[in-house]
Simulated assay, not measured.
Amino acid sequence: MSDLLVFGRTGQVAMELARLVPEARFVGRGEADLADPAACAAVIGAARPAAVINAAAYTAVDRAESDEVTARAVNALAPGAMAAACAGLGVPFVHISTDYVFDGSGDAPRAEDAPTGPLGVYGATKLEGERAIAASGGQWAVLRTSWVFSAHGNNFVKTMRRLGAERPRLTIVADQVGGPTSAAAIAAAVVTMARAMQADPALGGIHHFAGAPDVSWADFARVIFALSGMATEVEEIPTSAYPTPARRPLNSRLDCTAIARDFGIARPDWRADLAAVIKELNA
């Protein structure tokens, strides 16, 4: 897809997209500041791509609590401007969102039409972005995902391996449950969606995508240590024992039925993806 424009260059998904579709054009901060929605729209207007993927976001969940203006510009205003620019050109726009748009109550997987209720600024700004995209009038798709990991950037896998090498025992939250999702799997999903949307103007809307099986952070950590050959012990704690500036949803399970039906994309096994990431980190 040499006619593909991607916002993001250094994030986890953007770096996997660069591997998957190196011929695409990648827009970094130097070319368009995500805090400047008009600049993002101008890049699209000048490039006239066949499809646009937004893999950039303000993802510092705790920092967002005290930096709402920037988080809102990057997560809500910029995607809305991108979607409007794509609508003007008549090209598909694919955007990545998050399980944080939900309140995390109960233990059932959330479907796309489930009531939203973000617990903090990050989730609220991502939800506002979804609504701005939906109001753009063009062909768009929002991919909500969760617990992203890769060999790049900052993520739970890399943090666990670093801390596990320093300490024999770690306390890990056990009452938050979700589907760890590799950035590589997300990259493949959004490219598949963009191509399918180019071929079929009726495709789009909100879709959920997360790794399987659902697991707690504590059990996810245990698999990370096992695959890394580390003997680190995991002591389970409740979320209440690990206070953070932003509240986290306890239930991050996502119902991924629709994306399989509409795009033929199945939930990836995060254990296989994790093994590949750990192999890359070890190398």
Results as ranks from 00 to 15, higher is better:
Arg131Ile: 00
Gln139Ile: 06
Thr70Trp: 02
Val91Asn: 02
Val91Asp: 01
Asp107Val: 04
Glu130Asn: 04
Val74Asp: 07
Arg63Asn: 13
Leu119Cys: 13
Met82Asp: 07
Glu166Met: 14
Ile172Arg: 02
Gly129Ala: 04
His95Asp: 15
Pro115Cys: 08
Thr125Lys: 04
Asp113Trp: 11
Val69Gln: 13
Ala73Lys: 15
Ala108Trp: 09
Ala132Lys: 03
Gly106Asn: 11
Asp99Ser: 13
Gly106Ser: 08
Thr70Gln: 15
Ser146Ile: 02
Gly117Arg: 09
Ala141His: 07
Val173His: 01
Ser146Asp: 11
Met82Ala: 13
Glu128Met: 10
Lys158Gln: 08
Arg110Ala: 13
Pro118Arg: 13
Thr159Glu: 13
Ala132Gln: 08
Arg167Thr: 02
Pro92Asp: 09
Arg131Pro: 01
Ser150Val: 00
Gly123Thr: 08
Pro79Asp: 06
Leu89Lys: 12
Arg63His: 14
Ala108Cys: 02
Leu77Val: 04
Ala84Gly: 05
Cys86Gln: 07
Ala135Lys: 02
Asn154Phe: 04
Gly164Asp: 02
Asp113Arg: 08
Ala76Gly: 07
Pro92Gln: 04
Ala141Ile: 05
Glu68Phe: 12
Ala108Asp: 07
Lys126Gln: 10
Val91Leu: 03
Ala87Met: 03
Leu127Tyr: 09
Thr145Trp: 06
Val61Thr: 09
Phe156Val: 02
Val94Thr: 09
Thr145Ala: 06
Pro79Gln: 03
Cys86Met: 07
Val121Thr: 15
Glu65Asp: 12
Phe93Pro: 06
Pro168Ser: 15
Glu128Ile: 00
Ala87Val: 05
Ala151Met: 00
Thr98Asn: 09
Pro118Val: 14
Gly123Trp: 10
Asn75Gly: 06
Ala134Asp: 11
Gly88Lys: 03
Ser146Arg: 04
Val101Phe: 11
Ser66Cys: 08
Gly90His: 10
Asn154Pro: 00
Ser105Phe: 01
Asp113Leu: 10
Pro118Asn: 09
Ile172His: 04
Ala132Tyr: 00
Glu130Trp: 06
Ser66Ile: 15
Ser150Ile: 00
Gly104Gln: 15
Gln139Met: 01
Phe149Asp: 00
Asp113Glu: 13
Leu119Ser: 13
Asp67Glu: 15
Ser146Thr: 11
Gly106Leu: 07
Val121Asn: 05
Phe102Gly: 12
Gln139Pro: 05
Gly90Arg: 06
Gly137Leu: 06
Val74Tyr: 10
Pro115Ile: 11
Glu130Thr: 05
Asp103Ser: 14
Ala73Tyr: 10
Val121Glu: 09
Gly164Arg: 02
Met82Asn: 03
Trp147His: 07
